[in-house]
């Protein structure tokens, strides 16, 4: 599994891209992440992670069309690839599995 291991920030960004269909690019991912998790991340870190995830095959990307926004500069949009989707599912399953094995708290009077 080494090499395909996914870090925490990578996981969060992967999920963020997943919940932003057709509108996941650097700035939107940054804003969504900040809004949803309250984490302050630098844009360059977002770019780095997006690139890394793409290299791992979990995301795919394409350049968008040019618009009047951002001085006509195009955006690179990311979408969850099927491998990415699988990976998200897998992680969730693994976490649930681990969570389910958590022993109940000792003083559980409920």
């Amino acid at each position: 599994m080494k090499g395909n291991h996914i870090g925490e920030l990578e996981e969060l960004i992967l999920l963020t891209v997943g919940i932003l269909p057709d509108d996941a690019y650097g700035v939107s991912v940054l804003k969504e992440l900040t809004e949803q998790t309250g984490r302050q991340v630098n844009i360059s870190a977002i770019h780095a992670v997006l690139n890394r995830l793409e290299e791992k095959g979990l995301l795919s990307s394409h350049m968008g069309g040019s618009t009047n926004e951002r001085g006509g500069r195009r955006k690179r949009f990311y979408t969850l690839s099927s491998a990415g989707r699988e990976s998200v599912e897998e992680m969730k399953a693994m976490r649930d599995k681990l969570y389910s094995q958590l022993p109940p708290l000792a003083y559980n009077f409920a």
């Binding site: 690019y25 700035v27 940054l30 844009i43 770019h47 500069r73 195009r74 690179r76």
Partner: peptide, 14 residues
């Protein structure tokens, strides 16, 4: 350059 510059500019105006 295009995507990076676009992102930083967008963030700036925001």
């Amino acid at each position: 350059l295009e995507q990076i510059q676009g992102d930083v500019h967008e963030l700036y105006y925001w």
